[in-house]
Design a binder for these strands. Structure first.
Lengths: 143, 143
DNA sequence: ATCTTTGCAAAAGTTTTGCATATCC
DNA sequence: GGATATGCAAAACTTTTGCAAAGAT
């Protein structure tokens, strides 16, 4: 089975790289290093952490995955997709994606007008309680 | 000179705590551990890092300062103030504060309607080029 | 006197570096 | 064969923990 990902020349198709691509393709939640390692372990591979971090850097450079930081003191990665934001449930830690039709256009226009700061990007993440957890008294969601 | 900060009982007025409060009161940019230590060093105090981290935690708990994370792999702290966001210049690293009259009300309403996720907070930071840096060809701002 | 704060050493957690070896094309 | 990828050990960097000593009220 061929890879669905296109690599430029001088980039090799290796088992680790392929495994990571498959992982991100099948998982819809931003994963941290631990989760990625657990997946590799469970799939029978014993991959060195240096290799994992280097492959993650490579995949970010290749724009196959995106790096995320929710202020947890570590990075998370998810399959690259069009601009969107996240809803982080503080009760069960589930992470959902959300995108807005208008995004932050009005805010960015206001910034340019009032400060002359030219916005090139932004990071917007929401914290709160997901639908499931709202329906539980003890705020422990089974997911 | 008395402290401008009010502490509850069972909280002691100590040199380290006072120095940190003074620092945050006089600095308007979010500071990381290194900057805070440099300040303490330059003011003639040799404070242990454990103490600094513990005091930062304490001051956050006391709502005297706020913790920030811009995805740099480390935390920053600034004097607690009303809800606002930041403009981070990717050229000179200057950080400005900005607040919106309407903030993200429409987005949060949309989230509740489409996903039933109940937003309790958010983090919104803008990246871009500050006014000064826009006026420099080499994009190196003297600040 | 007692509870709070500090210092020190050690460790935990995440990520990076240097270098030698293996692997892909 | 030559460039790319991987493994290993060690370290860098931020932050935390445990415990004993010092300090504040």
């Amino acid at each position: 089975m061929k890879s669905v990902f296109k690599f430029t020349q001088n980039v090799r198709q290796t088992p680790v790289r392929q495994a990571l691509c498959d992982y991100f393709k099948s998982y819809d939640e931003p994963a941290d290093y631990i989760q990625i390692m657990e997946f590799l372990d469970s799939s029978g591979r014993r991959v060195n952490k240096t290799t994992v971090y280097r492959q993650l850097d490579f995949l970010v450079e290749s724009e196959i995955i995106q790096e995320l930081d929710f202020g947890e003191g570590k990075k998370r990665y998810e399959l690259a997709k069009s601009h969107h934001h996240h809803l982080l449930c503080t009760s069960c830690d589930k992470i959902e994606c959300i995108a807005f039709a208008e995004d932050l256009h009005s805010q960015e226009a206001e910034i340019l007008k009032t400060t002359h700061f030219k916005v090139t990007g932004h990071m917007l993440e929401f914290f709160g309680i997901c639908k499931k957890c709202q329906n539980k008294e003890n705020k422990l969601c089974l997911r």
